[in-house]
Amino acid sequence: MTRTTLTINGRRAQFDTEPRQSLADAIRNELGLTGTHLGCEHGVCGACTILLDGEAVRSCLMLAVQAEGASITTIEGVSLPHAGLTELQTAFRARHALQCGFCTPGMVLALHALFTNNPVADEDAIREAISGNLCRCTGYQPIVEAALDVSRANQDRLSQKT
């Protein structure tokens, strides 16, 4: 067992883990944050996407012990429980960009990371950002539309400022 300390959704957390436990399993089982989903456990579906020091990565492809000292954001950290949804989450709802919701946390985080770096991402950039996130329900079109709504709103805000 190895003691691992990290920051998750802004809070310090500590747990003991076998080296073989994936970061995704630790987030779910040790930290109780079950919004990080496991669709494949071998790195292809993107359901387990988290932000590791701000960057979207797959948490099933990291060991929990590797996260020592890291700062992690999961879907639970995107909007606080009693606060409203983010603009992106709201756009998902408005565009019906989720059905079963299983891929949704990964999608939201992948796009969250994109907009942090590139608030006015175009459709190509949006598609590339979620190209490694599989969705079996929506056909992606509404997800892309939701992201484009956010990009356009960001664009409008930017042009108002200048």
């Binding site: 779910r28 944050l33 079950t34 919004g35 990080t36 989903h37 496991l38 999961t74 879907i75 639970e76 995107v78 909007s79 429980p81 949804l85 989450q89 998902f92 709802r93 408005a94 019906h96 989720l98 079963c100 919701g101 299983f102 949704t104 946390p105 939201v108």
Partner: peptide, 20 residues
């Protein structure tokens, strides 16, 4: 109508069997 179930899914508060 916007879906009633969306908010919990968007917040990662869906409860799938592996979450129980």
């Amino acid at each position: 109508a916007l879906r009633l179930e969306d908010e919990r899914f968007l917040r990662g508060e869906g409860r799938y069997v592996a979450d129980l």
